[in-house]
Design a protein around this nucleic acid. Sequence first.
DNA 1: AATATTTTCAACCGCGGACCA
DNA 2: ATGGTCCGCGGTTGAAAATAT
Length: 313
Amino acid sequence: MGRQPCCDRVGLKRGPWTIEEDHKLVHFILNNGIQCWRTIPKLAGVGQTLFLSQARNNSIRQAILEPKASINILNCVTILSKSLSGLQRCGKSCRLRWINYLRPDLKRGALSEAEEDQIIQLHARLGNRWSKIASHFPGRTDNEIKNHWNTRIKKKLKQAGIDPLTHKPIDHEKYQQESDDTIMELNLPIHHHKTETLSRTETYDKSNEAENCAANATDFSLSNNAYHNVLSENFDVDLWSKSCKTMSNCYSPTLSLEAEESIKFSTVSAVTESSSNIEPAEEQDSLQQWMDSIFSCAVNQLEEDLFLLRKYN
DNA sequence: AATATTTTCAACCGCGGACCA
DNA sequence: ATGGTCCGCGGTTGAAAATAT
């Protein structure tokens, strides 16, 4: 009997993660920790549904009293009800996304020369045991190091006349024959290797802007800065909407002014509304949850705006 | 400016090992 | 010992971004 797949793949989403999915996963793990990856997709998002029903009741009540002021909130809640189901991802995919991209202790930005040298030394000792190698670099993932090895370091070594497999100087005449023999000995399929030349982008360094963008996005989604700002008296809506924009720019480079304004309006309304309807003892938690929801909502609106922009441009 | 080519890296796949009943 | 389940690892893929023509 064959091994069963890690999950029922029917109806599960694959491919790149959306902001909303990231948000659900981060929210769940920060609140509940990691227990069983298989159950995380089902549970992520569910914790917010209780608050959703509260919010819906509040907003409906408010809509009756003050229709104009609360219409945006009501819209948000309606959209949220569609988006707050569990994650349509398998546990494996969640684990990968968390480990390689979302976890808060990840170090961002290009690997330094010193790190590269250390990778080369460790690879000479350990071979392609990427997780072992990565364990020497806190904040770096095995995937990142593996990718860096395959795209940069291998080429650099070859350029320097060093065989990346053996870490010994290349004997050019024997090199091709030996690697083919090795492949035959190991009974591995022979692939047609692309001719590898020094990368045209070898000198290209990730711009500070890109790094800041990633760092800002991480800060925003993982350290709950936005919530703390909202809770403090000097909450700056402009600053917050800029954070949203910066984060969204990591995914999509263009945003409409309307979309930006939409975020501001949702935020101000949300803060006003939720503050007036929640008991003081629960205020902070509820407000944080509300901000969670509003953030998802704002992102949904942005994505809808982008979709329309693309459709009609 | 448009198109082609190359590079990067996030995400997927399948396997092996650990653990449990 | 056996079979089922889950997690983690390493190889690979392919879309998006960067660069060249």
